[in-house]
Amino acid sequence: MPSPVMPTSIGDGRRPCSPAISAVGLRKAYGDKTVLDGIDLCIPEGSVFALLGPNGAGKTTIVKILSTLIGADGGQAEVAGHNIATEPDGVRAAIGVTGQFSAVDGLITGEENMRLMADLNHLSKRKGKQVVAELLERFDLVEAAGKPVQSYSGGMKRRLDIAMTLVGGPRIIFLDEPTTGLDPRSRHNMWQIIRELVSDGVTVFLTTQYLEEADELADRIAVLHDGTIAAEGSADELKRTIPGGHIRLRFTDPSAYHSAATALREVQRDDEALALQLPSGGSQRELRSVLDWLDAAGIEADGLTVHTPDLDDVFFALTRNDAATPAEEAAR
């Protein structure tokens, strides 16, 4: 895709959009607090879309609206070709939702949870049994299947949660912060699960506060900020939109640090960490010239790292003035 994309919207003509999910101008307010202020989305079938944003940005609200859990105050959206407001049942038949807080029944066993889903998806007895057995196997829950879900670990609950979502064979899956609160191993397991889903052609709508996760999984990423989409594009496109490459020099001796800081004018100082940042694109040629220059100036740093812009930089650049207020926190 050519140019870097700063706020994109549907109807820009670049994509022939036969979207799994599309939205125009979605709005939602709780009381006088506006949570979503005109959200446009176009998510092609079979892709992974990550919605990235700080706590309280409204990620969960978007998922709730698109999954027909709550109504929007304004705007329109279609999911799987059905209008969310006028044909919610059509939407519900096509989607699976795994919320931020596990949507499992803690009082009954894992297998009973799965059978419940099979029956509510109106599968025949035989088909239901088969699907439940397959999914329990696939998500490594066979051993735990007979135990009450209350006794499961966080990772197991999350796996059961996704397994339950998959019983009905949804074509579109919403995953609201699927890895929040998981340990690193469970998180990587979850990523593997999501990749497998995508290879089956399922469209995945993912929300996350982890940039690494969006970078890892998503075809397209949108950054949600102040109720609007601040930027949208692939991870590479987003990284290209902002400067931020630099070389970081670290000192242990304060006097060396201070003489270096005065010798190098075009630097950003970090007095507390005794570190200096020089802007740089990170190429070999650039790096060599910086090193030569440091030698010439007689500066010897104790550590040198090269930093290329990552999604963190994009994120911070876009959400700079943001500090979630308690009110925003509560509105989630």
């Binding site: 519900r92 939702v97 807080f101 949507a103 499992v104 339950m164």
Partner: peptide, 10 residues
């Protein structure tokens, strides 16, 4: 949480 799941099912 499972009640929210029921609400998003057909």
């Amino acid at each position: 949480g499972v009640i929210a799941r029921f609400r998003t099912m057909s």
